[in-house]
Structure formats: structure tokens, C-alpha cells
Amino acid sequence: MTSIEHAASLLEEAPPAENTGERASWLQVAPMVAVLALFFGLPMLVVLVVSFFDFSRTDIIPAFIFDNYVDLFTREVTLRLYASSIKFALIVWAITLLLGFNIAYFLVFHVRGLLFQIGLFLLCTVPFLTSNIIRMISWIPFLGRNGIFNQALQGAGVTSQPLEFLLFSDFAVVVAYVHLFTLFMVVPIFNSMARIDKSLLEAARDAGAGRFRTVFEIVLPLSRTGIALGSIFVITLVMGDSFVVRTMSGGQSASVVSALQNEVAALQYPPAAASAVIMVIIVTLMVAGILRLVDVRKELAR
């Protein structure tokens, strides 16, 4: 995103000598830091602390024990939940990347006229600003046993029985994820691609590179910052989700976070906190892995 690039370029600059400008910046950034420290930093610290607490049926008991982590690592279900979450994350990542790259490519390189480009871009963006839950449940009449999709298939004589796997299944979960999160891939890739000088493509063509060669040699490498940022968004969103997986799988699939939500519902805060801590570590590792492959800061400063 241009915004992150902008920030990154600022961070590259050497720290200034102390001056009034710096004091003004501190004052200006203070409200944001205060809100985030209070409602994000402190609570995350509390989660870490509580993950070592003991608990009873109704209460959490201050302590310093590792039982929650031991339980987590010894339960067989943990591995299954992580496998499920990572499976969803990888499938959705692959699909949204394919879709996002192609949509961004179309908007940047095929659509002529800035106004038209902005219009189509907004067309993709507007659903993002409407309710995720509504967008999710809007698949129910589509995919249900008697849904539009099955009616159409049977009407066309493709199938004689309604397909059962469409709704309340992993398939439905993936469809909903792709529906909700593709935009997070489109926007950063679009931003990266829009900055590619069009004459680079002409230069590649002059050199004899065909359409696909140009995409692989020029467009893809120059979009990798956007791809990395989009991947971070999509993977963290899928890994951190519980609502989609619950609704769209009809309770048949679970994710790490939906299991955590169950624990919270049962007032088992410390195990939930331990689970959250492990999840944060894993997501952080994934993000770090992406950043290792693509040095976003260096790329952005380019």
C-alpha cells in the first residue's frame, strides 16, 4: 500500500536532532498511541499474563502455572484445529492471490481511462464497506440443499440429486472466505502494479518478450510488495477467524479461534488466553516468513 510505503520511507530517515518539530509530532501521535496502548497493548499483555493463571468453574485465579500450555500441547485436538486453520489459510491464500493478481492486472493494464479505472475499483471496494455477516449469510440461499445453485444444476439436468456438500461444509467456508477477503489482496497488488512504469512493458516487448513472459519477468517481481502485504492480510484474517467457519460449516468444521471462543463461552479464560498466545506466535512466524521472502521495507524504500 502506498500508505505503508510512505511510512516506510519515513522510517528510513535518520533520527533527527531534538527539536520543536519532534515534540509536535509526539503530541500529535500521542492520542493514537494512548488509545492503542490502552485497548490493544495492555489487553494483549493481560492475555499473556492470564495464560499462566489458574481457573475454577466461575473464576480466574492469579497464579503462575504452565498447565494451560501443557494441556494445549497434549490435547490431540489442538493439532487438528491448527491443521484445519492452516489448511483454510493456504487454500484461501492461493485462490485470493490468483483472483487478486488477475483483477489488479486487468484494472491497471487493461482498463483505459482513469475515471473508468476508479469506477471499477470502487465497484470492487464497496462490498468491503458493508456487513461481513450479511455477505456471509447471503450465500445460504445460494448454496443450500434447495438453493439456487442446486436448483440450477438440477434444472439443467446436470445432477439428479441436490449436491449436499455445497452448504455447511468446508467448501462453503472457502467460498465465504474468498468472497470476504479477496479485496484485501486486490488493493495492495493494485497499488504496486499501478506504480509500474508502462514503458517497462513496452521495453520488454521490444526485447522480444511475449505477454506471459512480460508478466513473469516484469509485472510479477515488481508486484511482490503488494502480493506480500495482501498475503499478510488474508492469512491473518483467515487464521484469526471464527465466525465464518462456524456459520458456513454449520458447526462441522472448527478453527483454532472458534475453539477458543467456545472456551471463552465456558468462562475458561486462562486456556483461551494460552491458545491465543500460541496462535499469535504462529501468525507472527508466518508474517515474518513472508517478510523474509519479500523485504517489504527495502522494496518500499526503492
Partner: peptide, 14 residues
């Protein structure tokens, strides 16, 4: 059999 030198040079930055 032509080659073009672009105004912006169009050197591949990567």
C-alpha cells in the same frame, strides 16, 4: 529490427 530508448529509460528496477 528496431530498438527503442524510452524517455524515462524504462530500466527494469528489479
Amino acid at each position: 529490427g528496431t530498438a527503442m530508448m524510452f524517455q524515462s529509460y524504462a530500466l527494469f528496477p528489479h
